[in-house]
Amino acid sequence: MNIKFDPNNAVIKLCMSGMGLEDSGDIEGAISMFNKAWYDATNDYERFIAAYHLARLQKSVKDKLKWMETSLQSAQKIDDDNVRSAYSTLFKNIAECYEEIDDSENAKRNYELSNSSKGVPSDAGPFYHGTRADLSVGDLLTAGGNSNYKDGLKMNHIYFTANVNGAGLAAALAKGEGRERVYIVEPTGEFEDDPNVTDKKFPGNLTRSYRSEKPLRIIGEETEWNKLTKTERQEWREKSSKNTGEIIN
């Protein structure tokens, strides 16, 4: 199974709605939304995400443990680059549950599994970068550009993703008058998970978003991705303008 994170997926949208209710203080409403996401899930990827959010809001430690283990088991059935980044977080949460119920042996084992799941991303791509700049094969994309999300901020890294639709979204939100472009790129040095999205609303780095201090080399151009409508583009711009969270640079 090779499923890419899709913000328009029905179960993910239910989870996003649940998180919105949670943020507004309506915990019961959030749990109800996450339950609906679980019962509407049709594959292991959707079950992995729904179970994770159900786990977070359980009052009983044993119920939280049950749902976290369900989330992990669903993720392990997929076991590809879309979910491996979540393993460390899931093992850590499971370890904390065992710690709370004084099961030190299982807590220690899961903390060790969490630590061994960390490290340099193993994602082999292909990778994409969305922009409005007119570039050519062989050109290098380097750090130091202006942020698309915060005025006056020079970025210390160059960002890219293995999700072509994520790159398309970045192109749609990019500043400039040029047409939206998605370039196929290859990193020229080490890269890391983008900390601005990793372990935020979802466990791990489900959007397969990365950053590097080293340049990206353009090796081609992608022309097929889910382009936003004018309304969707405006909604995303409004959402970005309202985001007051700190950018980890």
Rank of each mutant, 00 (worst) to 15 (best):
D102V: 13
S60R: 06
A10S: 15
S241M: 10
E213C: 05
A174C: 05
K154W: 04
G18C: 02
I12K: 00
C15N: 07
F160N: 02
G119F: 05
I248P: 07
G220H: 07
Y183K: 04
W38M: 07
F48Y: 13
L141H: 01
G189T: 00
G18Y: 11
R217C: 10
F191Y: 15
S104N: 13
D40C: 09
G125F: 01
L169M: 08
M16S: 04
I78P: 10
Y159L: 03
T131L: 11
F127L: 05
Y45S: 06
L140W: 04
I158V: 15
N106V: 00
V83I: 06
A143N: 08
W236L: 13
D151M: 10
E100W: 09
V83W: 02
A50N: 04
F5P: 01
M1E: 07
T198R: 06
N82R: 09
N82E: 10
Q234A: 07
S88P: 03
E69K: 09
K62L: 15
E99K: 15
E177N: 15
S60D: 06
F160M: 04
A167Y: 03
G20K: 10
R84G: 08
D63C: 03
G25Q: 05
A50I: 11
N146A: 08
L140A: 09
K36N: 15
V11Y: 04
N110A: 10
N43K: 00
S122E: 10
L90F: 13
G189D: 08
R109G: 07
A41W: 09
K77E: 04
A124L: 13
G166N: 12
S241Y: 13
F48W: 11
G189Y: 02
M16I: 05
G178A: 03
T198F: 05
A172T: 03
Y39R: 13
V185D: 02
L90H: 07
E232N: 03
R233W: 11
G168H: 10
D139H: 07
G18T: 05
A41P: 05
S116Q: 14
A167G: 07
K36F: 07
G168L: 12
T198K: 08
L57A: 11
D123L: 08
E112K: 14
K64W: 00
I158R: 06
E46V: 01
L72N: 00
I27D: 03
